[in-house]
Amino acid sequence: MMYYVGLMSGTSLDAIDAALVHIDDDRCTLKKGLEFPFPNALRAELLDLCQPGSDEIERMGRADRHLGLALATAVNQLLHVAGLAASDIAAIGSHGQTIRHRPTDGARAATDAFSLQIGDPNTIAEHTGITTVADFRRRDIAAGGQGAPLVPAFHQTVFGSANENRVIINIGGMANISLLPANRPAHGYDTGPGNVLMDAWIQHRRGENFDRDGRWAASGRCHQALLAKLLDTPFFSVSGPKSTGRECFNLDFVREALTHFSDISDEDVQATLLEFTAQSIAQAIAKEDLKESQWHLCGGGAANAALRQRLTELNTNGSVDDTDALGIHPDWVEAAAFAWLAMRCLHDLPGNLPSATGASGPRILGGIYPAR
């Protein structure tokens, strides 16, 4: 039996997710998952690189190598706990860390669009002895797409139903939806911030990395005028395909919105940011002609009890569950997707969903870095 490993480190930069999966005729079975924490210095460097700054090429080059080593270590630890050898693994699919995402939009020409992920795949292949597939987004961008989201094609394959309208809601740093109608083609797009603003605000005001279970948000009240200001962001008036990142939604975005108001408590800001995430997701789904749909959550936001409760209240024509009900634990869905994309690349099969990314057609995604 041959396995694949998927590696994902998302916008939240909370940890490296490594998923060991078995793929057979597009059936994807999760065998083991491992969370590998970022070394503090590397996490700080990656966060700094998400915004323009001095000496970027030197800093990026170092971070690229250091992240490659961390990703390789995560794989080797995963194989150790699973009792497997490198020879048991067909390939690693590594997303890498996005440090800049500039897709085409109304203000940027298609020829100026780019997306940059680091985490040197040469280093991963060298230190694991496993063929590594990486750089998944840029081929889609070269074909006129957004390069994101890439997970809808995987969601369609493993979570689609002939009898039920489903929406897969991936809540990482950013949030994206995969719309899986029962009898129509799938599509999807980024809906806006997931955890990124809630994480940034609690880090800024309380020195904590995230709001566990949404408890701090639940202690406050949504400020309706601030919410309206946030939802007035131009990104939300644009139809999909579309994608976004820290370039748009970051702590400065929150600070700028707050300059229009006074005397909002910190916990009320957090409550409003949670509502902002929930409303931006729900409003995006409401624009689709799905009538009744079952929502399934994955990503770190699936563990936020307050956010999950709010989404449940907003889905007035269906239920809310997580992807565990469909066979893959929500913590490992995105990493498993990049294992699947690696398999698709090695078998000369397309990995993108043009209806989600806007690319001119299906494309084989990723570059191959052979094992030694």
Rank of each mutant, 00 (worst) to 15 (best):
A257N: 06
F235W: 03
T272N: 09
R212Q: 11
E256A: 11
T259H: 05
C222R: 04
N209T: 15
S243K: 01
S262T: 15
A257Y: 05
I264T: 08
F253N: 04
T272P: 02
A218G: 06
E275C: 11
N250A: 08
P241W: 00
R255G: 00
D266G: 12
G240F: 01
R212C: 00
V238F: 07
R212T: 12
R215M: 02
A217Q: 01
T272Q: 06
E275Y: 04
S239P: 10
N209C: 08
A228W: 12
K229W: 06
T244H: 01
D266C: 11
W216A: 13
F249G: 00
E247C: 03
P241Y: 05
D213F: 03
L274E: 06
F210Q: 04
E275W: 10
F210K: 03
N250I: 09
S243R: 01
K242Y: 00
F249N: 02
L230N: 05
S239E: 14
G245W: 00
S265V: 12
R215N: 07
H223M: 06
R246K: 11
C222K: 02
A228P: 06
R246E: 02
T244I: 06
S237P: 06
C222N: 07
S237I: 07
Q270G: 01
G214L: 00
D268P: 04
D263E: 14
W216D: 13
Q270V: 07
F235H: 03
R212K: 14
L274V: 08
F236P: 04
C248E: 15
L226C: 06
N250V: 07
D211M: 13
F261E: 09
D268G: 05
D263K: 14
V238C: 12
G240T: 01
T244G: 08
F261G: 08
F236K: 10
D268S: 13
W216Y: 15
T233G: 00
S243G: 03
L227M: 11
G214I: 00
V269A: 07
P234C: 10
T272D: 06
C222E: 11
S262P: 01
F261M: 07
E275K: 05
S262W: 00
E256D: 13
E247S: 04
I264L: 11
